[in-house]
């Protein structure tokens, strides 16, 4: 009898579960999973920046506080999202850990938006001009792929709960990390362009990646009594 359609008695279920027990390999904790993800993501993104060629003025950029703030928020979003994705599948982890990355992402977008606004009212109206920057979409996807695969591999080992949140966080982690790397090899253009194309690409790939991740996660199979 399958549990879920014809309901079996709880005592029968206990016996079934007891007899069906096999040793299991413990899934890595969210902290360890995140370290594993960082270990894959950082070298893969560094390789991407090296292959594409870092910006000529990268040294000057790395000392600009507004650049560092936005990059810090992007990296923070990525790390929190990766941790949130790995916590989402754990029943003993609180739900706020899966919401926090999206708050960080909003803060990140708000920081970019603020810089855009400040430049616009400071007389540089060109900050509000949105130029076509289609390369952001495939560049973020290509940069995000290794880290997305890494987090998917960890998620496949243990995500039975809050799957949608886990997938959204995982995709956001990969996309945010890829966007942070993109700014090291791709010129920004105007702030509005960056806001629309780069953050837009992160949003797009978060949704697409979440849908693909969800399809890739194994679905729980119904139990059958022996």
């Amino acid at each position: 009898m399958a549990v879920g359609d014809g309901r079996m008695k709880t005592d029968t279920l206990l016996e079934t579960l007891e007899n069906a027990l096999t040793p299991v390999v413990r899934a890595p904790s969210p902290g360890r999973g995140m370290l594993l993800w960082i270990a894959v993501t950082v070298p893969s993104l560094a390789a991407m920046v090296w292959m594409m060629g870092p910006l000529p003025d990268i040294a000057a950029l790395l000392v600009r506080p507004e650049f560092l703030l936005v990059q810090g928020l992007a990296v923070g979003t990525a790390v929190l999202a990766a941790y949130g994705a790995l916590c989402a599948g754990r029943p003993d982890q609180p739900g706020w850990k899966t919401v926090l990355p999206f708050a960080a992402a909003l803060l990140w977008a708000a920081a970019l938006g603020r810089q855009c606004f400040v430049l616009a009212i400071g007389g540089q109206g060109s900050a509000l001009v949105v130029q076509p920057d289609l390369i952001c979409v495939p560049a973020i996807a290509a940069s995000a792929l290794p880290s997305a695969l890494a987090i998917l591999w960890v998620l496949r080992r243990g995500t039975s709960f809050r799957r949608v949140r886990a997938c959204l966080c995982a995709a956001l982690a990969a996309a945010a990390a890829a966007q942070a790397a993109l700014r090291l090899y791709h010129p920004d253009g105007t702030f509005a362009t960056m806001l629309v194309w780069q953050i837009g690409s992160v949003g797009l790939w978060t949704l697409v990646g979440a849908a693909l991740t969800r399809l890739s996660l194994p679905r729980p199979q119904p139990m059958r009594a022996s």
């Binding site: 279920l13 413990r26 243990g158 039975s160 709960f161 729980p220 139990m223």
Partner: peptide
């Protein structure tokens, strides 16, 4: 009773966690 049974099943599937 359904909730308890579903919890036991989910526990069985999530032992590795």
């Amino acid at each position: 009773e359904d909730i308890v049974q579903e919890t036991l099943l989910a526990l069985h599937r999530s032992l590795a966690l």
